[in-house]
Design a protein around this nucleic acid. Structure first.
Length: 868
RNA sequence: GCCAGGGUGGUGAAAUUGGUAGACACGCAGGAUUUAGGAUCCUGUGGGGAUUAAACCUCGUGCAGGUUCGAGUCCUGUCCCUGGCACCA
């Protein structure tokens, strides 16, 4: 028979054109919908290099699911857009000396072409580009909504500053170099080596600095508890939920107040372990706390020493303090606090290891229970006391404390808390302290408010006006958008103000309140504000009624929240938390009926190449275009989905994709060469049907759980079987041992074609989500079915066929495999029968010989185990 | 340090409730075809042992124990890796 070659490029471009012409993936009316399914992939930012294979891996994962749902009677809305504002786009524009807007046209065009060539089923009619003014006017609207709700405010504080990007950053955008996937750089761009605990800019890997600036913040901390509680009701991967929980960092504790000896003042510390307070031997306050609260109490002898220490500490950034190693510095203030619990006087020290932003900025030193306090106590020869609280007795919090105990510490017993579980002890202690009026329960969070100002050009102008008389005023909604002007000097200068500050024609304006002269805010918004609400916009982009609001309320009711959100886990505490926050705010403002935007989120993994994350600097970026051209989009899609689990970290290899292309050719050959020639007898037909229904079941269940790799492998098994039947070369095509043994006794002689047709038809349907072009070509042009395979109902399996006629029983002796027998289903249920047959197996006699069978373990339809 | 998740062939990986470990592929080896190479097809492929051949035996899921008729799967300890948080009191 002649070898058939699948001409991928002509087949794929042909069907892409037809799909487009027939609007296969475009929804005509967003209002008339039943069974709506909003299938969303996190939109990319358009980079000049285009999509790499990692994008293709992720987006294909989403597309497969969308196609599967479409075939399962859902009206699928699958949009795509561009997160086009932001430092990432702007930095590249600066590098090549082109205006970001000019660059944007090229990059989005390239992205669209690439996504289309992958055969994705996007609704290209409804797209979103965050840098378009008809999108960002609504981002400005959102800002004003937050302002009106009291959730957008200005604050002067120490903020993260990236010296390379010349802007401030939110806490969430500052991370370890490993997290950013970059090598740490200093302000001049030189690689930093050998230093630990460096925090860098998420975008460029430059070590961040601290600056004291007044900036715009969103009050996300107000939603800390809501953000935590909401996690309980959404279907997300545990690791993502956990990352958010950790980031929010809710901790219950208590503020304990100690009187300061010989004064009428008090000192307040926050602790989560008041049960150890019997063992408190000193107090340490942060330099900031000391400066604010203790200065006036200092006696002359120590005053200059303490002030010198405070001054020195405050001149250092937080990072510098931390980087100086674990050796703790400090100074005694000469003051004492009274611990009313054990009537001791605790010396008050100042040390820079205490962070001013945590708790009250003052810590009670319990060196018997805390490693840092222990180090401090050892360093300055302060007493070490360990409290025995119930079950805490043996489990030391500090490894070397027990040893120290004998040498220099005292062990005391707290009768008050004796024998209690640690959590109960903590609760009891808090009750006690509150009753006495010595303390008050306070919950602390790690989460900080979201800093949204950016001193850059390429972003949404913050729609606020500052009037000397009226203060900050929002721009009236009818004046939105505040257009981002086209300027040529858009390079950031690093003076703490954005490039727009050099353009009086932009910022000079009048006050919306009093009409007097006023100035606009010249900073722009963090890109994460743009992406915090884009999913609300997609379904409504072409709605006429969305002129007063960014989204049509009726359409939103039908389509939101998002049915399945597909994206990377690297956004766990960035985009995913911001989007939840914004959705909650809009819900509370009465614009939305739901307060969780993504009830179901799947976190895909990250594709790597040669063991490392793909990046331009490493030079290991895989361009999907070359593979599409050489092997075809379907081959690439199948390969990407087959490489491993969707949430894994597959390593792209050329040889792997070649193997997948061979598979595609074999599929093509099966359809073209064996469409009509195969004939089956009744027994052979049933044999094929069993495998077919088993495959349908497996593929259906696997896709639903994103186990695409095993779905594809079961399709491969199915095809191997069909090819074996087709070529009558039984032994060679079927490698699966189970199929092989069953195959042996079957005959494929008499004419009987209906089942064969059904087998091929269902094969095309099962392939459709993974290889949409191949499936369509085969469906229409070979099997002669009606266009389109992608709107044809997904095959259902018949449970009658899933159960095989005969089953293989495993025979074990003392738990070890000694043989197998094949029995009919009914026989396999009967213990006596199975044991009888099992004993007849040749090999078994030598194992049972001369030994007494103590026990016979029988699992119906599975195994029999002889225990000797 | 704390909290998660994970260690299975040369490689990517499979393995409902404990019940034939390594499906499906890649790679590799041998063979067929070919002037040759490539492509294709066939055979083999966890380690070790044994046999003329087939059947066969034995070890094997990071390591050490345990529970069980039976453990990749459950329990205890331990080592390593990945991710999140981190002088957070």
């Amino acid at each position: 028979m002649r070898k058939q070659v699948f001409n991928h490029s002509s087949v794929e471009t042909h069907w892409q054109k037809i799909w487009e012409e027939k609007n296969l993936y475009k929804l005509s009316d967003m209002n008339k919908v039943v069974n709506a399914f909003y299938n969303l992939w996190m939109f990319p930012y358009p980079s000049a290099e285009g999509l790499h294979a990692g994008h293709a891996f992720a987006s294909t994962g989403s597309d497969v699911y969308g196609r599967f749902k479409r075939m399962n009677a859902k009206i699928v809305f699958q949009p795509i857009g561009y997160d086009s504002f932001g430092i990432h786009s702007e930095n590249y524009a600066l590098k090549i000396g082109k205006h970001p807007r000019e660059m944007l046209e090229k990059t989005t065009k390239k992205y669209e072409q690439q996504l289309r060539s992958l055969g994705h089923s996007y609704d290209w009619r409804r797209t979103v580009t965050t840098s378009d003014s008809d999108y960002y006017r609504w981002t400005q609207w959102l800002f004003i909504e937050l302002f009106k709700a009291g959730l957008a405010y200005r604050k002067k504080t120490e903020v993260n500053w990236c010296p390379s990007d010349k802007t401030v950053l939110a806490d969430e955008q500052v991370m370890s170099p490993a997290q950013a996937g970059k090598e740490a750089k200093d302000a001049r761009g030189n690689i930093i080596k050998g230093k630990k605990d460096i925090l860098v800019c998420e975008r460029c890997g430059t070590q961040v600095e601290k600056k004291l600036l007044e900036q715009w913040f969103f009050r996300i901390t107000k939603y800390a508890d809501r953000l935590l509680a909401g996690l309980k009701k959404i279907d997300w991967p545990d690791k993502v939920k956990l990352a958010q929980t950790n980031w929010i960092g809710k901790k219950e504790g208590i503020n304990i107040t100690y009187p300061i000896k010989d004064s009428n003042q008090e000192i307040v510390v926050w602790t989560s372990r008041p049960d150890t307070n019997f063992g408190a031997t000193f107090i340490v306050v942060s330099p900031e706390y000391a400066k604010q609260n203790l200065k006036n109490l200092l006696i002359k002898d120590v005053q200059s020493k303490v002030e010198k220490y405070i001054k020195l500490s405050l001149s250092k950034s937080k990072e510098e303090r931390l980087n100086e190693g674990r050796k703790k510095t400090g100074v005694f203030t000469g003051l004492y606090a009274l611990n009313q619990l054990n009537n001791t006087q605790m010396p008050i020290w100042v040390s820079d290891f205490v962070l001013s932003e945590v708790g009250t900025g003052a810590v009670v030193g319990v060196p018997g229970h805390d490693k840092r306090d222990f180090e401090f106590a050892k360093g300055f020869k302060l007493p070490i006391v360990r409290v025995v609280v119930g079950q805490d007795k043996d489990q030391s919090d500090i490894t070397d404390v027990n040893q120290v105990q004998e040498e220099e510490g005292t062990m005391i017993n707290s009768e008050f808390l004796n024998g209690l579980d640690i959590n109960i002890a903590i609760g009891k202690m808090m009750d006690f302290l509150e009753e006495k009026g010595w303390g008050k329960r306070v919950i602390n969070y790690h989460l900080r408010d979201w800093l949204v100002s950016r001193q850059r050009y390429w972003g949404v102008p913050i729609p606020m006006v500052k009037c000397k008389l009226c203060g900050w005023q929002p721009v009236p909604s009818e004046e939105l958008p505040v257009q981002l002007p086209e300027i040529s000097d858009y390079k950031p200068e690093g003076k703490g103000r954005g490039p727009l500050a050099n353009h009086p024609e932009f910022f000079k304006t009048t006050c919306p309140n009093c009409g007097g002269s006023a100035e606009r805010e010249t900073d722009v918004m963090d890109t994460f504000v743009d992406s915090s609400w884009y999913f609300l916009r997609y379904p409504s982009v072409d709605s006429k009624s969305s002129t007063k609001l960014p989204f049509d309320r009726e359409i939103t009711k039908k389509w939101l929240p998002v049915s399945l959100y597909f994206g990377g886990a690297e956004h766990s505490v960035l985009h995913l938390m911001y989007a939840r926050f914004v959705t909650m705010v809009l819900h509370d403002r009465g614009y939305l009926d739901f307060d969780e935007p993504f009830p179901r989120f799947f976190a895909h993994g990250l594709m790597i190449k040669d063991g490392a994350k793909m990046s331009k600097s490493r030079g290991n970026v895989v361009n999907p275009d070359l593979y599409i051209e050489k092997f075809g989009a379907d081959t690439l899609r199948l390969y990407l989905m087959f490489m491993g689990p969707m949430d894994g970290f597959p390593d792209f290899r050329d040889t792997g994709i070649e193997g997948m292309r061979r598979f595609v050719d074999r599929v093509w050959e099966l359809f073209t060469n064996f469409k009509n020639v195969v004939v089956l007898d009744e027994e052979g037909a049933r044999f094929i049907m069993i495998k077919m229904h088993q495959t349908i079941k497996k593929v259906t269940e696997d896709i639903e759980e994103f186990r695409y790799n095993t779905a594809i492998s079961s399709i491969m098994e199915y095809i191997n079987l069909l090819r074996g039947v087709a070529s009558k070369n039984q032994k060679s095509k079927i490698k699966n041992q189970k199929d092989k043994s069953r195959f042996k006794n079957k005959h494929f002689n008499n004419i009987r074609c209906a089942e064969w047709d059904e087998a091929l038809k269902n094969l095309a349907l099962l392939l459709a989500p993974f290889a949409p072009h191949l499936a369509e070509e085969v469906w229409v042009n070979i099997l002669g079915q009606e266009f389109s395979v992608h709107t044809y109902p997904w095959p259902k399996y018949n449970p009658e066929f899933i159960e095989e006629d005969s089953v293989e029983i495993v025979i074990q002796v003392n738990g070890k495999l000694r043989g197998t027998i094949s029995l009919s289903k009914s026989e396999a249920q009967d213990k006596e029968k199975v044991i009888e047959s099992a004993k007849k197996v040749n090999n078994l006699a030598k194992w049972l010989e001369g030994k007494e069978i103590k026990k016979e373990i029988f699992v119906p339809e599975k195994l029999v185990n002889f225990v000797l």
